[in-house]
């Protein structure tokens, strides 16, 4: 038997798909940049604007974890395996995507410099335009936590009833807390203005673990109701 089959399956099948989606998004951003440059003066980082969407895409994809859980159980795996291995998959995939995003920022910086465009980032970020290590860590934190939130909310929907309300409540708290730590979804009152990489990285871990605990609560004995959308 293969070890960690769920993580293995997800990393070999879902991760490349997500990376491709990211590539598609980058391509779309490049086209949008070209159109903008032809019409008006470029002043903003397009990668930085596009990066915001990743937050929501990560939630959305995370939500599909409920379907993955059902499928895994249908094929004889356990909830416990899913809870641990899906988390491992999230961390690795979020890291990989964050690396790609960082690469996009770097590539964009080169293009802007050649074109002589101004490249402003949104001000609530915890990173500056050239602070690549911090860009990487902030995105990793944001993607991992968003995937985890999507996952436990999705599984809570499989559970139904009160679990959904609890999950949504936990999601709101986590989104706000994570917004303070990594600068995404920062509403002002939750802004911590962290400018230390170890602090952002270090505080992200307990938030991810809190989401993991919520996933465990939702998934540990959930009943599977399979259904194929036609």
């Amino acid at each position: 038997m293969t070890r960690f089959p769920i993580a293995r399956y997800l990393l070999l099948n879902h991760t490349p798909f997500l990376a491709m989606c990211l590539g598609g998004l980058a391509l779309f951003g490049a086209v949008a940049l070209g159109v903008t440059a032809a019409l008006t003066t470029v002043t903003l980082s397009v990668a930085d604007i596009g990066g915001q969407i990743l937050h929501w895409l990560a939630f959305g994809y995370g939500f599909s974890a409920a379907g993955v859980l059902s499928t895994m159980i249908v094929h004889g795996r356990t909830r416990r395996e899913f809870i641990t291995q899906h988390a491992v998959f999230q961390v690795i995939t979020a890291g990989l995507l964050a690396l790609l995003v960082t690469g996009v920022y770097a590539a964009e910086a080169g293009v802007y410099r050649l074109a002589g465009w101004e490249r402003r980032l949104q001000e609530h970020h915890v990173f500056g335009a050239g602070d690549y290590p911090m860009i990487f860590v902030a995105y990793w934190s944001m993607l991992a936590i968003a995937l985890m939130i999507g996952a436990f909310v999705g599984v809570a929907f499989l559970r139904g009833d009160a679990a959904i309300l609890w999950a949504l409540l936990a999601a709101v708290v986590l989104v706000l807390a994570a917004g303070g730590v990594n600068g995404f979804f920062s509403l002002g009152f939750n802004r911590l203005d962290l400018e230390s990489l170890p602090l952002t990285a270090g505080l992200s871990v307990p938030l991810f673990v809190a989401g993991w605990a919520a996933l465990w609560l939702a998934a540990r004995d959930v009943a599977v109701r399979t259904k194929v959308p036609a």
């Binding site: 379907g67 094929h75 194929v228 959308p229």
Partner: peptide, 8 residues
């Protein structure tokens, strides 16, 4: 009975 052995 829904033959759900994977995602649609």
């Amino acid at each position: 009975d829904d033959g759900a052995v994977g995602d649609g």
